[in-house]
Every structure is written in C-alpha cells, then in structure tokens.
Design a protein around this nucleic acid. Structure first.
Length: 465
DNA sequence: AGCCTTTGACCAGCG
DNA sequence: TCGCTGGTCAAAGGC
C-alpha cells in the first residue's frame, strides 16, 4: 500500500507513516531481527502486531490513504494503481515475505470491479473526509489557513469558504470535528521515556490534556517537515517527481531518513526534512557527537563515503557512512570504541533520546554507555564486546533508492570487529533497519535543531506512535 | 567565536 | 617505482 503515498514527498510519507502506522510500519513493528550465524543481523517478519492498536491504526490509515488519494490527480492515481505492492516488490527483492496489511475485510470484496479502488486501504469511512485530515491543524503549514487549535485560537469557521476550494470536499466542518472526535475516542498512545530509557509501557493521553504549547510544537514540527496540504499540492503539480517511486521511510531502512533526504531532483529545500547529515549514519543519531572530516568517492561504490570522527576529546571512534543519492544510508562502518559515555542531550542522556524512538522495540535491555548498543536502532551490544577496539556488525536490509530506476539499494551496517570478538553472539535484538536512520520516520527524532526542538519532536513521535 | 561541513591535497598501503 | 585506492588532513567558508 505504500505506493499509495508515492506522490507525496518522502518526508511527508515518513511522517504520515509514523503517525498512522501503516502496513509497513506494522511490518516494522512486527518484524524482529534474527541473528545469522555469520554475525550479521537480518530482519524477519515473524511477530504479530498487537491487534488492538494495529486495528486502530489501520482504520485511521485506511481512511487517511483513501482521502489523500482522493486529493491526488487521476494520473498519479493511475500510476500508483498500476504498480504492484511495495511490500511485494520488497519481498521480491529482499527475498522474504513481508507481512501485508490485510484489507480483504475492508470495503467491497470485489475490488477489481472498481478501478478507483485497485489498491488496498482505500476504504474511507464516510464521516472522515479528506478535509478531516488535510485540514487537520497539523497539516496546515501556512498562515493563510483557518485558525486551528494549533494556533491557539481553536475556532472553526462555520463554513469552509476561506479555504482552498480545490481541496474542499463535502462536509468540511463535520470532518474537522470528527477528526478530534476520533482522536479523542482513540486517544493517543503515549510512550514516555524515562531517564533510564524507554520503559516499554504505554499510557494513554487524552489530546485534550495536551498543553497548547505542545500542540503548537506539533504544528511547528509538521511545518518543518512540510507535511502539509501545500506540500501535497506542490507534489501534485510536479508529477515528474511525485510519480516516481521514492524512498519510503517507513518501509524503509534504518529509516534515520535517515531521513530520507529528498532526492537531488527535489530542489524545494524546505521539504528536506532529513537533509541533515545527522540523519541516519550521520552524527548524533546514535547519541554521540560526530564531526565529518572527509568525504570521498570510493571506487566500487556508487555513493560517496563520508568519514566521521567522534568529537569527544581523545575518543578514537570513527565511522564511515555511505549515503545514497537521496541521503539514505547504504552502509555504515564504525570503528573503535568510545572511551566515554554519551553526551547528555537536553538534560537527559542520549540514551533517552534514542529510546524516544524505541516504542517499536521489543524488550531491549538497556546497555548504557555502550554506544550503538543502546540505540533502539542498533543491536544491543554487551559492554565488554563494545569495549573492544572495534566491533563489526552487519545487519542487512533494503532501502529503495529514488532516481530514475528506483533500484533498491542495500543498506549495510558494519561495525568492525576486533580480534576475538564474536559478533554473532553479541547482538541480540535489532530492529528492522527499515525503521532506522535511512528513512525519515525515525530520523526525524534525530534531526534536531536543538535540544528543545529535539525534545518536542520526541514528544511528537510519541504522539504519532 | 566556535563548531561544523566541504573539498582538494596529501599520505600510506598494496599490487 | 609507479599507479591505484582508501583514509586523513587542513584550509576555506558557512552557520
């Protein structure tokens, strides 16, 4: 179903995916990593998504997808329909069967009879119109739109006369109201991060209890990620870009979209959510501070390799990061061992920061101070092992490179092992790299502009998850 | 001012 | 020794 979002920017998709927990995210959640004999880590889909939460997410996501699609031009939709499921393509390329969102029970049984509904997840509840979603406060990116709760005014116009007519659909007011009604009904699943890291517990937070500032922060976040109606419209007007398969964060790879950067073809700088080098293999995504000291085009690699050093004094750790044309990490090689603990971030340890994204992680034992090991996107590495001069780890995964061919590129993480280190026995729990840095949904949390914003974004991610 | 990225040059290892 | 390649340095510039 991911192709349903193709016309959207990767950033938007990443964010949306994070928010609604699409099928692929479900896959991410459902997937667990297994350890191969050779020490590499591979993700395998073999864990079921908690049913209740998944059902709610699917319900919302189906509605959202359907509504968004209804806003897209027919051409894009047709192109989308003509493509196979991304999951299927991934499965074909990666050689595993990714779990699919079951949509048979949603909507008409005979979908083939309806051309406009050729892909799953298109059933839209009649009371949840496009405006419900597109006019959601978090979707509004410009100041011309109607006041919204995110602006602190929280007043809806009696009618939608002042809004963009092209996006208007039936029953706008009802849609908006329903948005909050539904949100309220569903409640957010808020997963707090404690000083010691992710607790694994989830608590419900009634949206009404959120502070105005929090809402404003959420809105600001969406604006920064350009996950807005205006961005969608821009995409509509540029089919040459939007119609191409692009990296899908949630599907993706380490996701730390890495923030999936917008491709070079996308010159709209404000849409670059993850143009930050931190995203993915860049500095900070693992809680440490890195300084790039070199970049080189390596023979045999289609992407330039970046060299990073840990900025901590006397810390010998270096890492090499290969990034695709879109900024997705295709390979990370970390060498050395940190001789220091993670720097504090916003009054809390980087560990906490890392775990902000770890709500999909399953019972990962915290390994404070072990570097990547305590990052939700990195496997747990016993301190003793990480203490070696170098550690090598090679989880494999896939990401989808944009570009004309949309060829998949393999994401490759590698920690160089020191002698006597059995990498195969040191890593026990790793997430699907699809959810890691090479894709935006996750990287957003690391795409920090500052401690404050980082903290706010973390909060947002909790809301979205 | 400090830190960062960028990027061309330089260095070392290897065949 | 030479050429190739990967890794690093360091000046310049940006934020």
């Amino acid at each position: 179903m991911m192709e349903d979002w193709m016309p959207l920017s990767p950033n938007a998709r990443a964010l949306f995916s994070s928010m609604i927990g699409d099928a692929v995210i479900g896959k991410s959640v459902a997937e667990s990593s297994t350890e191969n004999r050779d020490g590499s880590l591979r993700v395998e889909p073999d864990i079921q998504v908690p049913s209740r939460i998944t059902d709610q997410k699917n319900e919302i996501q189906n509605s959202v997808v359907g509504n968004i699609r209804s806003q897209l031009n027919p051409l894009s939709e047709q192109k989308l329909s003509s493509r196979g499921s991304l999951v299927e393509r991934m499965a074909a390329r990666a050689g595993f069967n990714a779990p699919r969102l079951k949509t048979e029970s949603i909507g008409p049984n005979d979908l083939s009879q309806k051309q406009e509904i050729q892909t799953p997840c298109l059933t839209v509840p009649p009371d949840l119109g496009p405006v419900t979603l597109l006019d959601s406060p978090v979707f509004l990116s410009d100041t011309l739109v109607m006041p919204s709760p995110t602006t602190g005014k929280f007043s809806f116009a009696p009618n939608g006369s002042s809004r963009n007519s092209t996006l208007m659909t039936n029953n706008p007011d009802k849609g908006k109201d329903n948005l909050f009604e539904e949100i309220d009904a569903l409640s957010f699943t808020f997963k707090p991060v404690t000083e010691s890291g992710y607790t694994g517990a989830a608590c419900k937070v009634n949206p009404s209890s959120l502070s105005q500032q929090s809402i404003l922060d959420v809105n600001r976040f969406f604006q920064q990620t350009d996950f807005s109606r205006s961005s969608i419209q821009r995409k509509k007007s540029s089919d040459n870009i939007s119609s191409e398969p692009r990296n899908f964060d949630a599907v993706g790879s380490i996701a730390g979209r890495s923030s999936p950067l917008d491709g070079p073809e996308n010159e709209d700088a404000d849409q670059r959510v993850n143009a930050d080098p931190n995203v993915g293999g860049g500095p900070a995504e693992d809680g440490y501070n890195w300084r790039k000291y070199g970049q080189k085009q390596v023979k045999g690699s289609e992407y330039p390799r970046s060299y990073y050093k840990c900025t901590h004094e006397n810390c010998p750790v270096k890492k090499k990061v290969e990034r695709s044309c879109e900024g997705y990490i295709t390979e990370i090689t970390c060498k050395g061992a940190h001789n220091h603990s993670k720097p504090l971030v916003n009054g809390r340890s980087a560990l906490g920061t890392s775990n902000a994204l770890g709500d999909m992680q399953l019972d990962t034992t915290e390994q404070p101070g072990t570097g990547f090991s305590d990052h939700p996107f990195w496997p747990s590495v016993p301190q003793a092992d990480w203490g070696q001069d170098s550690v090598e780890l090679t989880p494999l995964g896939q990401e989808y490179c944009n570009g004309a061919t949309s060829l998949p590129a393999q994401t490759h993480f590698q920690f160089e092992l020191g002698d006597g280190v059995d990498g195969s026995s040191t890593f026990s729990d790793v997430e699907d790299e699809d959810d890691r840095g090479t894709h935006g949904s996750i990287s957003l949390a690391y795409d920090c502009e500052g401690d404050e914003s980082e903290s706010k974004r973390r909060s947002l991610l909790f809301l979205l998850n």
